[in-house]
């Protein structure tokens, strides 16, 4: 029974953890990936938001 309860409680936050990782991915993409096209398009935003830019 104990294992069952543990499984359930850890699964309870699975959607939240999934969305949090998605958010982290978006922030990495817009703010940190150094690919030239992304960097140029996001350049002003990266400076204005305080991300390490180049």
């Amino acid at each position: 029974m104990t294992t069952l309860t543990q499984t359930r409680s850890s699964l309870r936050f699975a959607p939240a953890i999934f969305v949090a990782l998605l958010g982290l991915g978006v922030i990495s993409l817009t703010g940190h990936v150094q690919a030239a096209a992304l960097h140029d398009a996001a350049h002003d935003m990266r400076h204005a938001t305080g991300f390490p830019c180049h």
Binding site: P15, A16, I17, V19, A20, L22, G23, L24, G25, V26, I27, L29, T30, G31, A41, A42, H43, D44, M45, A48, T49
Partner: peptide, 21 residues
């Protein structure tokens, strides 16, 4: 316009993290 779009994307990323928490 690209700057505004990327700012919207960045804040959407922030929001995904914050609302999850």
């Amino acid at each position: 316009v690209l700057s505004v779009i990327f700012t919207m994307l960045t804040y959407t990323g922030y929001a995904l993290l914050m609302v999850a928490l």
